[in-house]
Simulated assay, not measured.
Amino acid sequence: MKLDLQDIPRVKGISKESFLKDYFRPQLPVVFEDLSADWPATQKWNFEYFREKAGDIVVPLYDGKPAKGHQKSHGPAMKIKMRDYIDILKKGPTDLRMFFFNLLQNVPELVEDFRYPDLGVKFFKKLPVLFVGGEGGKVVMHYDMDLANNFHFNFAGEKRVILYPPEETKYLYKVPYSIVSMEIIDMDKPDFDKYPALAMAKGYEVTLKHGEALYIPSQWWHFIKYESPCLSLTLRSLPTSPKRILEVLNNLLVVRNYDNLMRRLKGQEWIDHKNRMAIKNTHKNAGID
């Protein structure tokens, strides 16, 4: 038994009209093979370049350990200088990742190395964010709380990405009061005996290489495995429909704060309860006894 995944379509030289018609409006993923071909970042962005430009900046690092007890769900594991983190990446496998690092705030000169592509969508230009991870690092299956449309550009290394559309949520062991699947589930090697509904979900996959970009539509689930140390940039287009904006506000102001409150009050008891409910709800929705 294995996950039901198909390859994500690939395009070169796509026009904004074709992108809007074939991918953005129908909310379907696509890999751009040459969208950043003429960007300075495609030639210059590697770990030594970042050591030179941003080596002294202190960055928060996150690991793959689920939050326990009374911990908040999104806290960093440590904070160190960028150059020290690059040294860790070069030594070998590590699950330490840089997550949602705002380039505009921290290293504004690097913003000159890329451009916002002309794809007919409005980008949120205050938030170009960097993602860095070491070999073997994994990002739990989740969707973004702000429901952004993401354009994810990879400039170093290779990463495997698995995507699922929102309609497959019922099979993905979504944890109540969160935007993640159960953190104990390894989508790289799922245990179908414990989590049989995963085999019923229909998704997509790609190995993203240097110079390639992936469009991840709003509210699509994504799991990432770093096959080698990677350095990537995400440009974001935020939702504009009133319904989606209300969903975002609910996620940010109600769901997240309620979950963190319950973690403080109930600790591990609350986390265990949510995981039991994730299994119960998923198996009920999937018709599994």
Rank of each mutant, 00 (worst) to 15 (best):
I80N: 10
I80H: 09
K81F: 10
K81P: 13
K81T: 11
D84G: 09
Y85C: 10
I86P: 06
D87K: 15
D87I: 05
I88C: 01
L89A: 11
L89H: 03
L89E: 06
K90L: 12
K90W: 02
K91R: 15
G92T: 08
T94S: 15
T94R: 08
D95S: 14
D95W: 09
L96F: 14
R97E: 07
F100K: 02
F100G: 05
F101H: 09
F101K: 07
N102R: 01
Q105N: 06
N106S: 13
E109C: 02
V111A: 11
E112M: 08
D113N: 09
F114D: 02
R115A: 09
Y116L: 02
Y116V: 04
D118G: 01
D118Y: 06
K122S: 12
F123R: 00
K126C: 01
K126G: 08
L130D: 00
F131Y: 13
V132N: 03
G133S: 07
G134T: 07
G134F: 12
E135D: 00
E135Y: 00
G137E: 12
G137D: 15
V139H: 12
V139M: 13
M141L: 15
M141P: 03
H142S: 04
Y143M: 04
Y143K: 03
D144Q: 05
D144E: 15
M145N: 12
M145G: 09
D146K: 11
L147K: 11
N149H: 08
F151N: 00
F151Y: 13
H152S: 07
N154C: 12
N154D: 06
N154K: 06
A156D: 08
A156Y: 11
G157Q: 10
E158Y: 03
R160N: 10
R160G: 05
R160L: 14
V161W: 04
L163K: 03
Y164P: 00
Y164H: 02
P165Y: 06
P166A: 06
E168L: 05
E168V: 05
K170G: 01
Y171N: 05
L172I: 02
L172Q: 03
V175E: 14
P176E: 05
P176C: 07
Y177T: 10
S178C: 04
S178H: 10
S181I: 03
S181F: 02
E183K: 14
I184Q: 15
I184G: 07
I185H: 02
D186C: 12
D186K: 12
D186L: 07
K189M: 13
P190W: 11
P190G: 11
K194T: 12
Y195M: 05
A199D: 12
K202M: 10
G203N: 01
G203P: 04
Y204F: 12
E205H: 13
L208F: 11
K209A: 13
K209V: 11
A213H: 00
A213M: 04
L214Y: 03
Q219K: 14
Q219R: 13
Q219D: 14
W220F: 13
W220M: 09
W220V: 08
